[in-house]
Every structure is written in C-alpha cells, then in structure tokens.
Write a protein that binds this DNA or RNA. Structure first.
Ligand code: NAD
Ligand code: NAD
Lengths: 234, 234
DNA sequence: CAATAATTGTGAAAAATTTCACAGTAAGGA
DNA sequence: TCCTTACTGTGAAATTTTTCACAATTATTG
C-alpha cells in the first residue's frame, strides 16, 4: 500500500516555483524552453531540472497503460520548438501538484502588510480565491475599498467554517499571532502562511505551516555572505 | 587548501532560524533548553538539531587548542539547567554564522509592504542597520515620519556606495524590480532579499539573492495539502 | 550514596538527493 | 541524404544529509 505519489520535498518545492515562472514565460508569448535556460532563470542546475521533471511522467495515466510508454515531457533535438512546451509542461506540473482546482484563502490582519497582500494581482488570476479578510479595527475595515469581503475578526471562526477556507495568511502583530493561529486551526483551516515574527505552535499535524521570516532571511543571507568572506580572506 | 568552514546548506539555514528563536526564548527569561524542546518549537527532529549543533564545535577556538577538547556545547543530564544554555549557544551560533558584527541594509520601494518592513522592530535591535530607504515618489517621502533616512530613488547608487550598504531589500512594483536590482548590483550590493513577484537575473555570482514569493509559498502549501488529500482518499 | 531519569554528542549506517555521462532524438542546414 | 547541433531522459555513481543507537554525563530522588 505504498503511496508513490509523494514527491521528494526539494523537488516539490522547485516544481512549485517553476510553475510560477512558467506562467510568466507564457505571458511573454514564449512557446517552449530548454532546461538550460530554465536553469539560468531559476538558479538550479539543468540536470536537476530534468530530473525533477522526470517525476511528472510516473503517474500520468491511470495505470499500466502499456503501449507507447515512450512519450517524454519535453522534445529533444535542436532548433525552435525544442525543449519543454510551456503550456503542456505547466499543465502537467499543475496536475501533479494539485494546482488545478482553486483553493480558498483568507487574510487576517489588515495593516500595511495585509493591505499589500490584499492588493496582489494573484487574487485576480483565479487559482487562489481570497474569500475573506479580517481585522480587529472597525475603522480600518471601513476605510479600505476593495472587492474582497471584509469582516471583523470576531467573525473569523464563523466565516472560515462557512466558506470552508483552506489557507490562512497571518499578518497580525506578533502578540496576536499565536491566538489567531489557534482560532484558525480550531475553525478547520488546513494551511497557514505566517508572516508574523513568532514561532507558532500548532498541535494538529494535519495543518501545514509555512513561515515567511524577514529575520530568518536576513540571517541566512548574512551567513552566506560570511562564508564568502571567509573563503576570500582565508 | 580545503575550506572546511562551510556548513551544509540545510544546517546553515536551520541554524539561522534557530538563532532567531533563541533570542525570543531569552527574552522570555529562559536560561537553557533541550534539543527535544527545540525540536517541538522548530518542527525539526531533535537528533537533527544536535547534529547541527555539533558543527559549532569545530572551529571554536583559534586552532589546535589541544587541552581539554572535551567541552561540548550543551550540558548533558537531567534536571534544571541541563540542555543548551541559551546565551552561550546563541553566541556560538552567531559567531559561526557571522552574525556578530552588524550588517547594513537598505530598503527600496516605500509602498504598503515597504512601510511594513520599515516599521519592523528588528531595525531597533542593532544587528541589522537600515541606513537608507528609497522611493520614487517625493510625496511619499515627505509623508513618512521615521528615523530611518529617506532618499529619492535617483540617489540610490550614490548612497549605497557611500555607506557601503551590503543588503538590499526590494519592495518595488514588479515592473521596476529587475532594473532596481541591476542598479543595486552595479552600486556594489552583496545580497538582495526580493519581495517582488519577478524572477531576477543577477549576473554576478558574488551577489546572494533570496526570494520571498507569496505565489511560491501558496503553491508549495497547496502541493503539500494535495499530497495529504491523496494519502487520505487513496 | 546508589539508582534513576533526562539529556548531550557522535561515529556509523541508512536514506535521500544531486550529479554524471551518454544514448537517443529531431531540426536545420550542407 | 547526411552531418551537425542542441536538446531530453535516465540509470547508476557520487555526494550529501538524515537517522540511529548508545556511551557518557549529571541533577535529583529515595
Ligand atoms: N515576514 C515579513 O517579511 C514581514 C514584513 C513586514 C511585517 N511583518 C509582520 O507582519 C505583521 C503585520 O505587520 P504590519 O506592518 O502590517 O502591522 P500593522 O500593525 O500595521 O497591522 C496589524 C493589523 O492587524 C490588526 N490586528 C491586530 N490584532 C488582530 C487580531 N487579533 N485579529 C485580526 N486583526 C488584528 C490590527 O488592527 C492592524 O490593522 C507584523 O507581525 C509584522 O512584524 C512581517
Ligand atoms: N512576497 C510577498 O510576500 C509580497 C507581499 C506583498 C507585496 N509584494 C510585492 O511587493 C511589491 C510592493 O508591494 P506594495 O503593495 O508595497 O506596492 P506599492 O505599489 O504600494 O508600493 C510600491 C512603491 O515603490 C515605489 N517605486 C516604484 N518604482 C520605484 C523605483 N524604481 N525605485 C524606487 N521606488 C519605486 C512606488 O513609489 C511605491 O511607493 C510589489 O511588487 C508586490 O507585488 C510581495
């Protein structure tokens, strides 16, 4: 009963980002692209990209479809139109990562960061549906003009349950982050993207948490810079 | 001439985040903590944490200090005060990652997101010095009240060079991101944290780029949720 | 003071991931 | 038609990273 549908985490994360890139390249009018070019754009070696892409083939059909197994994802050979066809590659990745049916999301905390996220174009693209945004301040709620439905934070549980919201984006002050996360989890959220500089404790191992930490990024960046410095000066 | 100062990237990134967590625990008044507890807080297995921490010992002193090599980073045994002493552990990690001397940073783009970052408490803590923030809009610059020095974007190169700014945080609209990155690199920046939904092309392999991508995070989260769903339903 | 309990540190084994190297493929000339 | 060129796809090797298992350590309890 071994589920072979799970991708290696590094592959999953690279594909998720590749998916974003492919969308942008399509908007540029491109038709196909080589692993070499993707490698330059993504900063990932080309053979790693090809290997990642090789995971897409596995569960493509239903089962032992037998005949003409050969069809790869990309087109070998030189000249135009060779490489990976943008559209079908994007479709395949989307299917493999479950990015085909839209997910519902909500945003909690409409301060500067929250509003920045509210304004993102991504909500107009149809893949992610921002169906609610919450804040504690009535004032704030009245001032904002947006098509996204706004609610007072006291409505959180009710709205999350009602709309079966899957993903919560947390942009509240650090003091309020843990409590808000608890409420989201309690209301049945399935994933949280946490922007607050706090280490969330989420008991349920069903809930996926991703942290976006400026301090973390700064430290990682600094550490890489430091290693560079060490190499150079000795 | 093998440089053994480079940490495995996963270890480096975990230590960088652990460093942030340790600061918070210290503020809570804690003195020491076990790898087991850290494991719960960080979502990383305890043996991985111990292994990561074991890298700290290597270059601790100057060189072959010989005598009493034994001293580990943490204190074994049960009872209070056992585990890793917060303060010294944090110091050690800081030293190993080069987080001891302050780094200079600048922020480009003072829209909603930029202002959110401008307001972060991290700039008051002394480890990172936000020495300049830029925007194109004179109006915007006049309206903002902050202790951080604000400049018009045309001053970018001059200011970055003058203050030898090491890290640039990019919060401009997507259309302006590549150009701004080019200017930062040209002015001698060493690292970029890019918040714009754009794939930056940076020729110099000296410059470290970290992308913070909401779309990427959403896709990764969705893909994990999808894998969960597959497991469950079969 | 001896036994207990909780904890670190680490070499070695296992597992995961990346890299390699090259056979196979097809477009676009020559 | 036959090279040449620029690709993909992949099994196997190499490398990296994680996991394991347990000896060593020490506060605390009985
Ligand atoms: N990770 C990053 O890159 C990053 C960048 C900037 C800011 N941040 C963090 O994001 C958070 C928001 O930053 P900001 O500048 O927008 O802050 P802000 O103070 O401007 O906004 C916070 C908003 O949350 C609302 N709020 C407070 N408690 C609430 C609750 N319990 N429920 C719902 N809403 C509540 C407030 O009314 C306010 O509108 C902070 O925690 C900040 O540290 C993270
Ligand atoms: N990664 C994330 O999590 C995340 C979240 C929210 C927003 N974003 C992105 O961050 C960026 C900023 O978002 P925002 O809501 O603050 O946008 P915004 O439009 O409110 O602000 C952009 C600011 O940049 C300034 N600007 C424009 N061109 C510039 C230039 N060449 N040099 C200097 N300044 C310039 C504008 O005057 C404006 O003040 C956008 O690209 C947005 O997509 C990312």
């Amino acid at each position: 009963m071994k589920k072979d549908s799970t991708l290696p985490p590094p592959t999953l994360e690279r594909l998720a980002r590749l998916y974003v890139l492919l969308g942008k390249l399509q908007n540029l009018g491109l038709q196909a692209i080589s692993s070499k070019r993707l490698s330059e754009l993504l900063g990932v070696p080309d053979h790693t990209i090809r290997k990642d892409l090789s995971f897409l083939k596995e569960g493509q059909g239903i089962e032992p479809f037998a005949e003409k197994e050969k069809a790869g994802v990309g087109k070998p050979g030189s000249g135009v139109g060779r490489g990976y066809p943008l559209e079908s590659l994007r479709l395949l990745i989307g299917a493999r990562l479950g990015l085909t049916h839209p997910r519902t999301a909500c945003l909690v905390g409409l301060g500067n960061l929250g509003v920045a996220i509210l304004n993102r174009r991504i909500w107009q693209e149809g893949v992610y549906r921002l169906v609610a945004a919450f804040d504690l301040s009535e004032n704030r709620l009245e001032l904002l003009s947006t098509k996204i439905p706004l609610y007072h934070a006291r409505e959180l549980e009710r709205v999350v349950r009602n709309y079966r919201i899957e993903i919560g984006i947390l942009t509240v002050p650090p003091e309020a982050a843990q409590e808000t996360a608890d409420r989201l989890v309690h209301a049945g959220i399935r994933g949280i993207i946490n922007f607050a500089p706090v280490v969330l404790t989420v008991k349920s191992n069903r809930v996926v948490v991703r942290n976006v930490s400026l301090a973390g990024e700064l430290n990682i960046l600094s550490a890489y810079l430091y290693q560079q410095e060490e190499e150079t000066h000795g």
